[in-house]
Computed example of a mutant assay.
Amino acid sequence: MMRANQKPKPNAPPRPLFSCGFFRRCTQSVLSPTSPHQQPRRKPATTSSSSSSSTSTSQSFTQWRFPHHVDQTPSTAPPPPAPARPPPLPVATTLQETYQIAELHLASVSESDKLLALQLLERVVVPDPPSDPTCPPGLMRGLVSCLRGNRIVTAKYVTKILLALCLAEGNRRVAVEAGAARAVVETAAGLENSAVERALAALELMCTTAEGAAEVRAHAMTVPAMVAVMARLAGRGREYAISILAVVYGRGGAFSGEEITVAPAEEVARAVALALEGECTARGRRKGAHLLKTLEEYGRLDLSQNGT
């Protein structure tokens, strides 16, 4: 019974379901499967430190659950432009037009233009060597310039083209006047075997002209270059080198009173005899034997005394 003057007590608030302080603290904090228990936030997260903490926690959880992958989203930046290519050569209808187009491109300072010209000439003149019209001197000078550049790629094309052009008798004098004979002598040592073989074949054809023969006899590098190449090559390459030596020491050369510069005949004979012991064509053996007899006939070398 309540007293008349006693006021009723207000209803007490319901007790929480869990009275344990641990659970009460957990329900008031941010749950994270990887981070330690955090203190209740006293105010909204407005500072940079709280933002970075939340971000790092989120990243940590993501990296824990899934492997890290590089972002493969395609870039919006445009791809780099492709390198500019030289314009294609115009289609020629006649051999003379081919010569004119190639001559213009060989005169260019661009290596790409020169290579295009050489490829055009190879397609036209190598499969079917022309006999007419005669190769323009400017085009031949361009070929000689490319040969002197001593680049493997261009030398491969130049030697093919030069040999094909020299098959026509009218082009041999044009080649000699453009300096092709001197260029072959001076670059032979640095060419690859296949290229030097073609170059020597062209030089032998140039030597069928009086101007070409005089050119190789007058060049101080002819004999040492041919001796070195003869020892390095075999088969037809060795044959061509012996043929050019025969031009130097033939009846119209060293033994005719002509003023020329030659190596000692004894050394040349030894090199020729050694070359004949190795791989050589039948024509090369005939030319080599004739050269040795020529040296002996003119008293330049006594083969029996030198044991050759």
Results as ranks from 00 to 15, higher is better:
residue 56 S to E: 02
residue 37 H to Q: 03
residue 243 S to P: 01
residue 28 Q to W: 01
residue 28 Q to T: 07
residue 161 I to F: 01
residue 98 T to D: 07
residue 170 G to A: 15
residue 111 E to Q: 13
residue 72 Q to R: 10
residue 247 V to E: 13
residue 295 L to K: 01
residue 286 R to H: 04
residue 138 G to W: 03
residue 241 A to C: 12
residue 169 E to P: 05
residue 60 S to L: 12
residue 176 V to P: 09
residue 29 S to C: 10
residue 152 I to W: 13
residue 212 G to S: 09
residue 66 F to I: 01
residue 239 E to C: 09
residue 166 C to Q: 00
residue 282 A to H: 11
residue 134 T to A: 10
residue 72 Q to W: 07
residue 67 P to A: 14
residue 72 Q to L: 13
residue 77 A to V: 10
residue 7 K to Q: 15
residue 182 R to N: 12
residue 136 P to R: 09
residue 278 G to L: 04
residue 143 L to W: 14
residue 189 A to Y: 08
residue 6 Q to F: 06
residue 270 R to I: 07
residue 251 R to E: 13
residue 21 G to S: 15
residue 294 T to Q: 04
residue 270 R to D: 08
residue 93 T to H: 13
residue 104 L to P: 01
residue 95 L to Y: 11
residue 204 E to M: 02
residue 124 V to E: 05
residue 245 L to Q: 07
residue 163 L to Y: 13
residue 132 D to N: 07
residue 149 G to D: 10
residue 124 V to R: 08
residue 286 R to K: 12
residue 140 M to V: 04
residue 59 Q to H: 11
residue 104 L to H: 04
residue 157 Y to L: 15
residue 175 A to M: 03
residue 217 R to Q: 15
residue 282 A to K: 11
residue 36 P to I: 00
residue 104 L to I: 04
residue 6 Q to Y: 00
residue 201 A to Y: 15
residue 252 G to A: 10
residue 148 R to G: 08
residue 97 E to K: 03
residue 179 G to T: 13
residue 247 V to F: 08
residue 118 L to M: 04
residue 59 Q to E: 14
residue 247 V to P: 02
residue 226 M to P: 03
residue 167 L to I: 07
residue 211 E to K: 06
residue 77 A to N: 11
residue 31 L to D: 15
residue 236 R to T: 09
residue 12 A to R: 14
residue 46 T to A: 09
residue 55 T to M: 07
residue 159 T to M: 11
residue 163 L to N: 09
residue 20 C to L: 14
residue 136 P to E: 11
residue 227 V to W: 11
residue 187 T to L: 04
residue 223 V to L: 02
residue 158 V to M: 01
residue 112 S to W: 06
residue 225 A to T: 15
residue 222 T to I: 06
residue 24 R to V: 03
residue 192 E to G: 08
residue 245 L to W: 11
residue 206 M to C: 15
residue 222 T to Y: 05
residue 11 N to G: 02
residue 177 E to Y: 01
residue 211 E to I: 00
residue 261 T to H: 14
residue 8 P to L: 14
residue 148 R to T: 08
residue 58 S to R: 10
residue 209 T to C: 01
residue 64 W to T: 14
residue 195 A to C: 10
residue 24 R to K: 07
residue 136 P to L: 09
residue 44 P to C: 02
residue 135 C to G: 11
residue 98 T to P: 08
residue 180 A to K: 05
residue 88 P to C: 12
residue 137 P to T: 00
residue 141 R to S: 09
residue 299 G to A: 02
residue 88 P to D: 10
residue 145 S to D: 05
residue 47 T to G: 04
residue 130 P to N: 05
residue 282 A to G: 06
residue 41 R to P: 01
residue 242 I to K: 05
residue 264 P to A: 13
residue 280 C to F: 02
residue 152 I to T: 12
residue 88 P to L: 06
residue 238 R to V: 01
residue 147 L to A: 02
residue 82 A to Y: 03
residue 9 K to G: 02
residue 146 C to M: 15
residue 48 S to H: 09
residue 251 R to C: 14
residue 42 R to F: 08
residue 205 L to Q: 09
residue 98 T to M: 04
residue 138 G to Q: 00
residue 130 P to Y: 09
residue 135 C to L: 15
residue 10 P to F: 09
residue 241 A to Q: 12
residue 189 A to E: 11
residue 234 A to C: 08
residue 34 T to P: 05
residue 244 I to Q: 02
residue 37 H to D: 06
residue 259 E to H: 02
residue 195 A to W: 00
residue 213 A to Y: 05
residue 73 T to M: 07
residue 118 L to G: 08
residue 280 C to N: 03
residue 5 N to E: 10
residue 80 P to L: 09
residue 297 E to Q: 00
residue 159 T to L: 12
residue 180 A to F: 12
residue 123 R to L: 03
